[in-house]
């Protein structure tokens, strides 16, 4: 089995994995980072979104070996101790989550949006979320959260 090494949430990790191991499996099963979820098998729901070298990626559509040498960050790495990341805080303030299953992917995707477009409009947010499904919220409060989170990230 090949060995894969990467940095996850700032820590170096290295393991032997089958080549067919998906990045999301590696995070969940090898590293115990179960905040990244799997909601579909056709790469559409976005519950598995993490950042790879600073860009959002679906960790269910990437092999762990493809992340060799990469910097991966997951929902578990966002908060600074007890202080939530401004985007996490915005979701809490604006009731941007219900069951919480899609939430990690939504938050990771939203942060990438703001890194790409620091002042997104409501339309930009709705378009950006094409790859993230939520069944609970009707997106109304997710959009509101991301707009507030974008402002907070600038401040």
């Amino acid at each position: 089995m090949p060995t894969v090494s990467m940095t996850v949430n700032g820590e170096s990790v290295s393991s032997e994995v089958e080549p067919r191991t998906l990045l999301v499996q590696y995070l969940r099963e090898n590293l115990g980072l179960t905040g990244t979820h799997v909601g579909c098998d056709t790469s559409q729901c976005g519950a598995c979104v993490v950042h790879v070298n600073g860009k959002s990626a679906k960790s269910c559509t990437m092999l762990a070996v493809q992340a060799e040498g990469s910097e991966v960050s997951t929902i578990e790495g966002l908060a600074d101790g007890d202080t939530l990341h401004p985007m996490q805080e915005a979701f809490r303030e604006n009731h941007g989550l219900q069951c919480g299953f899609c939430t990690p992917g939504m938050v990771m995707s939203a942060i990438d949006l703001v890194q790409t477009n620091s002042d997104p409009s409501e339309h930009d947010v709705r378009e950006w979320l094409e790859g993230n499904l939520c069944r609970c919220t009707g997106y109304h409060n997710i959009v509101k959260s991301i707009l507030a989170g974008a402002k907070a990230m600038q401040g």
Partner: peptide
């Protein structure tokens, strides 16, 4: 094309 995550990879 696709969604932002597809476009990133």
């Amino acid at each position: 094309i696709g969604d932002p995550q597809v476009r990133n990879r």
